[in-house]
Design a protein around this nucleic acid. Structure first.
Lengths: 340, 340
DNA sequence: TATTTTTACCAAAGCGCTTTGAACGCCTAA
DNA sequence: TTAGGCGTTCAAAGCGCTTTGGTAAAAATA
């Protein structure tokens, strides 16, 4: 059933029915009620594409996951977009997804933008000096970056968590507990978030007069295996670090495995702090010992990013949003004073 | 730039330009070349919605993740859809995503179908007697189920892996190694895949004349924590099982933690087999000892499901696809003969 | 050379909606 | 009594494409 048929059935013009359904004022209450009822009764739903063509709005937001084959598809992503779904549904927006694949990432944006497929896009996993910013600016399509692109903080809308501050505080906590040699197992540092984290970590070491030693640092994949390998490597160094900071819960399982294998005790022989995105399948507080974390819900971030992009679309002239979320440092059992 | 403008620029009618661009035969080679070139030069992209309205095809497939709040958003999903992306891109299809959220799952399908938003949907995580089948049949929209809905194997298109056979073989392997008491840590058994797995496991036990003991079985969340809890519970039973089968790699990290904590040795004191969906962040072969698994790439399944739904859309009268993929049993270091 | 077929193009209709501009009836103010 | 205003409704245009049903010109056939 389409608008015309519904209108015919109601002895009304398509104009009036359309207006009634879309809440315009120039329809009598009585008519509106009648229209609403019959529309519901027939299960009428306006054709998405007709509406989109007529209004010029796609009522859709595009999400493009990095195509980089060297990286796994991010298991955080589903949580990120899950947070956004309700926001979009409430506004009648759809989510368009393109995950990995052969196609050039930037050309996906072009398809989306120039074909009018989406009204805006969300940029995930920004790198330092990410070329997508320029591409999107050229396309003149609204977008929000989850994270930031290196030092550049203006000129584009973003929501980020305070990765720098989080790892700065985490490192300071360890130093205050007496740790002098602290390892860092980080994500790929051409991702801005990982870069920020390293800088926060280094800053804290500098402030406390501790040396930065590349030997106890690593930058790589957020996998169990890499967590295991790097933990083992670092803890086997001659001058063994007494604490480790990890960029993700995904690394933790591997790290714990390595530590167990070396017959060390977490919280005593080696303190552990990891960043926790709030994923359900890997819970920091239920580990033994429970894990000290820098915590920030990626789900909530997803929801907020959705609100931001909708805001930009609704009012393009409004001030560009820049949100830097503080990150909780939750101290649990995996951190302790250094043993004499 | 739109079709009309491009046509005007070329001194051609929109008709001809449209045909040239879409590869229809009634255009001279020379004209086609000219059109292609200019279209590229101006970066012309046909308006998605206009095309969709005119053709009546949405050129989009809908993916709806279960809204069930008790379940975490599936970290497997991104891999599943990542596999599909290339297939869709090659056919000019988009992916529409709705993940979790407040909205009734079935009502999302209604929106998608009745509004013509998508041409077909993929059903994820089917339960026993899943109501979505009826809803989708009522909506008369093409769909493919990833998995099956209980015993029902006809009347809908599906692609499934042989969960029953996989766990049957895995259990037999353990029995053949001498294990008499084998634990099962399963996913929620109202999901069909988990149900099948339990049945395969029980079948093998029955065949070998071993007792099925609910005490050494569990059905629940696929999380590290649950893996830890259940492993601990089961291995602390008076008559301790000598082997464990796990429904997911996500459970493995927890299981290994529990086993380590109990000072048992994997492959000697307790054999371990887990199902591996091929997720990059949790690699079975790199664990120590390497893990014996039932393996099936969820990414490949995602790609194939994409092909199937496109096939159905292209030719609705073709025979309904039913694909049951065999599952590899990869024997590695975590399984060994039972110790005397 | 006359006729049919083929080739290459075009005008116009239509997809299902929104929106502009106009009309109609009724009420109020002058 | 008439002009203006307001509340409701409608006809028609338009969004940007595809597709149907043509028509000329060129090529093939008789």
């Amino acid at each position: 059933m389409n608008l015309k048929e519904l209108a015919a059935h109601l002895n009304l013009s398509p104009t009036t029915v359309s207006r009634a359904l879309n809440g315009y004022p120039e329809v009598s209450e009585e008519t509106r009620k009648r229209v609403d009822e019959e529309a519901r009764r027939f299960g009428y739903r306006p054709n998405t594409h007709a509406r989109r063509l007529a209004t010029g709005r796609a009522h859709a937001i595009g999400y493009v996951l990095p195509a980089d084959k060297s990286l796994m598809i991010d298991p955080l992503f589903s949580d990120f977009v899950a947070g956004a779904t309700d926001v979009y549904a409430a506004h009648g927006f759809d989510v368009m997804l393109h995950a990995g694949g052969q196609e050039e990432e930037t050309s996906v944006y072009q398809r989306y933008a120039q074909g009018g497929t989406v009204d805006g896009v969300v940029v995930l996993g920004p790198r330092l000096g990410d070329p997508r910013i320029d591409v999107l600016n050229g396309l003149k399509i609204p977008y929000v970056v989850h994270g930031r692109v290196g030092a550049l903080e203006g000129g584009y809308a973003w929501l980020d968590i305070d990765n720098y501050g989080a790892f700065h505080r985490a490192t300071k906590l360890l130093v205050d507990l007496g740790h002098q040699r602290i390892g860092l197992i980080n994500g790929y540092e051409d991702f801005n978030y990982a870069n920020e984290r390293r800088r926060g970590y280094e800053k804290a070491l500098n402030e406390r007069g501790l040396k930065i030693d590349p030997l106890v640092m690593s930058s790589g994949m957020m996998t169990e295996e890499n967590g295991f390998q790097q933990t083992k490597r670092i803890l086997q160094l001659a001058n063994r670090p007494t604490a480790l900071i990890l960029g993700s819960m995904l690394l933790v399982a591997g790290a714990m495995r390595a530590i167990n294998e070396m017959r060390l005790v977490i919280g005593r022989d080696v303190s552990l702090i990891a960043h926790d995105d709030g994923l359900a399948f890997l819970n920091a507080s239920s580990l033994v010992p429970s894990l000290t974390t820098t915590s920030s819900s990626i789900r909530l971030a997803g929801a907020r990013v959705a609100e931001l992009i909708l805001g930009i679309i609704t009012d393009p002239k409004a001030e560009q949003p820049h949100e830097l979320w503080p990150v909780d440092l939750i101290v649990r059992g995996s951190t302790g004073p250094v043993m004499p």
